[in-house]
Design a protein around this nucleic acid. Structure first.
Lengths: 122, 122
DNA sequence: TAAGAATATGCTGACTTTCGAATATACTAA
DNA sequence: TTAGTATATTCGAAAGTCAGCATATTCTTA
């Protein structure tokens, strides 16, 4: 049946779209950029300084975020001002934060168990 | 001051952790796997069949998801059963879905505008 | 123990990502 | 127009990713 193959390919297209967005976010520097932009728009230079990045490097990461439509930008004089295009991009980071938190707590629990074990063994 | 550098590096570690998780999810096949596992646990084989994957390829993607702690797995006889470790991983996909939806709607609006333009020009 | 199913791992080549350095472009002010 | 500031682009090397193939490993059943 044609319909099956068709919907399957549409799903794949959407998954590819999602993976491109995730890919764009999947770098410590770019996560830091999005975190900063959540607080409000910033110039490329200010971002670079805040995050301690090489100028060219910052610009490269910004170019990627631009090409993936994660950020919006506008020129103002000789400066370029960046902002987050969709606040939901920040929400992704919130969910991720919860995931990390839970993981770290698990690790702490494991450490505690090891601690208990040592007490029992003494 | 030491504290500054210290917190900065901790933040970077967390960002690296987040980016590793995102990276793990940033592939159409792995997104499909997570989508399937949201509905319930499945064997490696069943996943491969459902998604039309080569056996080795499916196993490789599963290995990555395992190494990044995205999935849990247990052996049952000669089969290996996979499941999602943290439901929040599915939530990431929900947020992403909203982002994609909004983007596609924007595109539709643009298409509409082009349509209008043609009407006006006639 | 041998055969067969289910799954994992190792290897290779094509492709992509990343950074840093150099260079280019765009704007501003003298 | 020239110098200076802000930002982007290009290039090359090192590292990483991915699919496909061959080969292991592990379990089950005869």
């Amino acid at each position: 049946m044609l319909t099956f193959e068709y919907t399957k390919n549409v799903s794949n297209d959407i998954r590819r779209l999602k993976s491109e967005i995730l890919q764009a976010l999947a770098h410590p520097t770019r996560i830091a950029i999005v975190e900063e932009l959540r607080r409000g728009e910033l110039t490329a230079g200010a971002l670079g300084v805040k995050l301690g990045l090489d100028q060219a490097n910052a610009s490269q990461h910004l170019a990627l975020l631009r090409s993936r439509q994660i950020v919006a930008y506008r020129k103002e004089g000789s400066q370029v001002i960046y902002s987050l295009k969709d606040p939901a991009m920040g929400e992704v980071l919130d969910v991720l934060k919860r995931i990390c938190k839970r993981r770290l707590e698990e690790t702490m629990d494991l450490l505690d168990e090891i601690g208990e074990g040592r007490h029992e063994a003494r």
